[in-house]
Design a protein around this nucleic acid. Structure first.
Lengths: 202, 202
DNA sequence: AGCGTAGGCCAACACGTGTTGACAGTCCAG
DNA sequence: CTGGACTGTCAACACGTGTTGGCCTACGCT
């Protein structure tokens, strides 16, 4: 509950910007190591000691800069899926666009894998994923699907397919799923997502 | 590596059957508690002490009967998806049949949820899920899909959808996905799985 | 009845964890 | 030059974990 982000030291004459700190490199190294470890091991097995060793500093620095393990995780992974505005996209291409975007997001860094691994074991992680789903994927479904009443169910179906792909490809690493090329995935999953969003309920 | 299952004590005149032991009730209680805990908490957070407390016995009993924590997990969860023989089923109903079967399997006990949670965090768990995939789902795909060459990729796609549903419904518990009725899920996912198995590659 | 053996509990060990506080070097403002 | 803050290290604490061995009890066979 204590604040570890309270820093009143501005370094220049400009009073507005926080100003760069000498330890920014260390902070960044910690975050990068934390992302890797959380993505590879999940929450419980990603120990602060291991993260500190990867970042080549002392474990106590992690505590000083991020308060505790939970704070470190919150600082290391971001909640933003950066979903593009799909209203301008062609109505019958929303599925492919979504799959393409998710694939890119998932492979450009390890934050989402970390979040998924943690969400599978940690209660707090699961709740954070529910938030992401509700605040980011749900609005997209509301725009794309015909009956707004059905948006939650349809968004849930989309999430099941997209997260299922991430699970089998990046976490469980089923060989055939790992071997699929990006375009193949888009070609297979795009129509599925499209149908979940826009097809009349069966 | 040591054996904790070596029991040469037969209780009756019949020499063939192992014979019931006095501690069978305890063993069963341990396994049941273990399944619940592994399903609810994953491998690391499901402590032997907690399992023992649920089973109302001492933690050391768990060790005596199952050797170590890994042995307990192996004894608690089964690997058998009991996939029905789908050769006799109608060719265009394989998708719905698979989804229906998976839903029933997943909800009749907590073993699959436990396996999924553990697979997401534990290296050994992930490998065990790869085995299940390879030895049980893959053969079904080989029977159902036209070109045997494409069976692995198609089985991987099916796994992504089925495990994704399990993830969002039983682990992350996304409210809209939890709220779906079984028939709705079959109606939505059945055609998807069917397409992944039998449709010509896009 | 007597005895061996299995069932069960208790206390403890060794270890790894998150977390904390005291201490030394280092940079910059005054 | 001097003081204070920031950065970093070291050692330790309190706790929970898997795991082990010793002890007592009670059943079941002879």
């Amino acid at each position: 509950m204590n604040d570890s982000a309270s820093n009143g030291t501005d370094s220049g004459t400009d009073g507005t910007s926080p100003g760069p700190r000498r330890s920014d490199a260390t902070r960044a190294a910690i975050l990068e190591a934390a992302r890797e470890r959380f993505a590879a091991d999940g929450y419980e097995r990603a120990t602060i000691r291991a993260i500190a060793k990867d970042a080549r500093i002392d474990p106590s620095m992690v505590m000083r800069y991020y308060g505790n393990k939970e704070g470190l995780f919150a600082a290391a992974v971001s909640y933003d899926l950066k979903l593009p505005d799909l209203t301008s996209a062609a109505r019958d291409e929303v599925g492919r666009a979504l799959v393409t975007h998710f694939l890119a997001m998932w492979e450009e860094n390890e934050e989402l894998t970390a979040m998924l691994r943690v969400g599978a074991t940690n209660q707090g992680g699961a709740e954070r994923m529910q938030e992401i789903f509700r605040e980011q994927l749900l609005p997209v479904a509301r725009q794309a699907c015909p009956d707004p009443e059905q948006a939650p169910a349809r968004a849930g179906l989309v999430a099941s397919q997209l997260l299922g792909l991430a699970l089998t490809r990046y976490v469980l690493r089923f060989p055939p799923t790992v071997a699929l090329a990006r375009e193949e995935i888009v070609a297979w999953l795009g129509p599925t997502v499209q149908r979940y969003l826009t097809a009349p309920s069966p």
